[in-house]
Design a protein around this nucleic acid. Sequence first.
DNA 1: CCTACCGATCGGTAGG
DNA 2: CCTACCGATCGGTAGG
Lengths: 207, 207
Amino acid sequence: MTTSDRARPRKPRADGERRRASILREAASLATVTGLDGLTIGGLAAATGMSKSGLYAHFGSKEELQLATVAQARRVFDAEVFGPASAAQPGVPRLVALCEAFFAHVEGGTFPGGCFFVGAALEMGTRPGPVRDSIAAFQDELGAVMATAVAAAVERGELSQDEDPQVLAFELNALLVGADAAFVLRGDPAVLEVARAVVRRRLTSPD
Amino acid sequence: MTTSDRARPRKPRADGERRRASILREAASLATVTGLDGLTIGGLAAATGMSKSGLYAHFGSKEELQLATVAQARRVFDAEVFGPASAAQPGVPRLVALCEAFFAHVEGGTFPGGCFFVGAALEMGTRPGPVRDSIAAFQDELGAVMATAVAAAVERGELSQDEDPQVLAFELNALLVGADAAFVLRGDPAVLEVARAVVRRRLTSPD
DNA sequence: CCTACCGATCGGTAGG
DNA sequence: CCTACCGATCGGTAGG
């Protein structure tokens, strides 16, 4: 608490924040190709035109960089998937919007390697630590959002009373993961069209 | 074609073949944790008690090692999944057997990182080359096996005439991939039980 | 944020 | 199959 704390109240390191954000956008993209572990300080330095030690000034260690990259990917997912979904009516419309937004997110090429969290889940699943925990926390949230939307749909009579929220959430999640994996491997948007049709039929015809 | 070719017709380098096979079993296991790219000559040497140059004597290059590792994983998948499936009756029984064998393969812990090909598809999808091609070829085969079994089930009247083999094959594949991803991340067999129930319901109740 | 550097490990080779 | 080695790159640090 020095006097200088109040002397310059505006834009404290605003450039540094912007720089950090642009580094993390690059990091999240890179990680969908190389993996979170294959994301290298030197490689990221080259991609951003910085020196390695410049990156260490921002992130301190590789693990901190990985965690910041996961947080960045989460912000992107919020903006491109959760956002559009929460704008839709609760119940089936929200479930459909969530899946459609996911497919658009994957197809739109935000990340070259498809959904960040699908790749990260497979890569980090067997590697205990804070990075894996942050991926698992995201998956828990996604599952909870889906299960909540399913429960709302059941309450509104849009889905059968027999529908188990956890089970249908698993089914839908699997369709997203399966579509992402197939699209990344083939690069063919047709698989996303198939996935869209399956989601719509599953949510709009009788169980 | 020298005389020695016929002088020792039995067990030509049988020890070398056995050694190679045991190296590849270790390589396939390791790769489900580290990834095919994170599979390192030095790391595999340490895991097998060999020197790095000993591995180069067997495989020549890292890419050759990766291709041989994919081939090994394929042999395991044949033995543990395709084998049991082909022993079942064509149609729905074979589809169910294929999925059940897959879940048992994942749950049984053959590989610490779950299904080799799920992780490999996500990892190699954005990295063109012969290794990715071999992964894609496997996925094509799995899809074809499933679509063929669906078509047989439709012909036998076990599934609705409206069922599109390609679409249902995609659905089932997604359930396998989604179950593998969730099981690897959580380590909880309960997700496989959910997946089994979904598969059975999808294949035994009216569409 | 930089240059310059550290020990460790990478894929791969020489020579046996 | 081994030891011994190559240049390149890894994560990270010193000092500015």
